[in-house]
Design a protein around this nucleic acid. Structure first.
Lengths: 195, 195
DNA sequence: TACTTTTGTAACCGATTGGTAACACAAATG
DNA sequence: CATTTGTGTTACCAATCGGTTACAAAAGTA
């Protein structure tokens, strides 16, 4: 380290967490890795953040990983178009963010307070949207939740899988064309469901 | 060890792999863990299997993790009922097998020859079914593949997630009742799609 | 100026990792 | 019988893990 600047040091540490998460995932975030990537001695990690768990919690807190995009349902012509837009946004978000994919992957193997908090927030915003769609479309809320689950669940799965696998059911999950196909299927489904 | 029986020793080792996989997952299968769980010294693991990778390959080879269930489409009244049955079987399989869930989870973080082989087989059998459904229903094959992807993808995701999370979109993914709801949604979807 | 606090590093700790060498002994083979 | 081959264990190795102690030096403070 060159200067003596705690703020800058903390930032270096958090930046190192970011690069490790994006490249190798949360599982690889350890004291030694963070220390070597950041160029900061690991004592400072404990001194400034307490533990790796707290460091990760801070990282999650800094980066808005919950769905914070605004989706005013009133702006759309009808529920069908609104729904399509929501899922398109969901796919885009997950496909363009390596860190978010790693977070979703990490959630499949871990359970801790930080993750539980993320899940709660996500659950609330998701159910808000599902409620709105159910109300405006007249569809049973369980059905709306079910359809939503089928789509977001598979999208999450495919986006994670795509980092280690190129094809799923003949769909090229690494290329835009493959996702265009899936989007067409989603549109097709909604056209059939919302008469 | 009591007796000197190579076959029995190999079996003990493979059994240990099985219990570790079921409880902690493939990520936890290391020489030391296998040695301590099996009660066999780790030298024998290398002697008899070469490496952990080869040991895991053997484990995957012994246990039929690819879809080997027979699904004769002719037995069913129509394509709709056949499709529903296929996905019901998929859900059952994944929900009742901890090892299979751990395998699917492992695939999200790993890529090696053994996994690639599994994926190929799975891809082939899946596309066989998709082709048959497309032919008999007259639906576009990309749409059938898309629908199938939405369902199996989300089911895989939810089954893995359920080990660390109880609720997703208000669905209790740990209980039969939650899955009954999702099955109803799938049925509902097929009723809408296959007129 | 002298002293305290803050920021940093180097070195070390025990535990655990994957992996191997050396050795003991049973069993088959000559 | 002697010897080779197969089966097993103990003990060790270097590397790495998370975590801490001890110390140096800069920066603020009296």
């Amino acid at each position: 380290m060159t200067t003596k600047d705690r703020n800058q040091t903390e930032r270096r540490i958090l930046d190192a967490v970011g690069t490790i998460v994006e490249t190798e995932g949360f599982e690889a975030v350890g004291v030694n890795a963070v220390a070597s990537v950041s160029g900061v001695s690991k004592v400072l990690i404990y001194r400034y953040f307490g533990s790796i768990e707290q460091l990760l919690a801070k990282y999650l807190e800094d980066n808005d990983f919950w769905l914070n995009t605004e989706f005013p349902i009133q702006q759309y012509d009808n529920v069908k178009e609104f729904s399509k837009a929501v899922f398109r946004a969901y796919i885009d978000m997950l496909r363009k963010s390596p860190a978010l994919r790693k977070l979703y992957r990490w959630e499949l193997t871990t359970n801790n307070p930080a993750i539980a908090g993320l899940r709660e927030r996500r659950e609330r915003t998701a159910m808000d949207i599902i409620n709105a769609v159910s109300r405006q479309s007249g569809q049973d809320i369980d059905q709306v939740a079910g359809i939503s689950t089928l789509i977001t669940g598979s999208v999450s799965y495919l986006c994670i899988l795509a980092e280690n696998c190129a094809v799923y059911n003949s769909l090229e999950i690494n290329s835009d064309s493959g996702w265009e196909k899936l989007l067409k299927t989603i549109d097709f489904m909604f056209d059939k469901i919302f008469d």
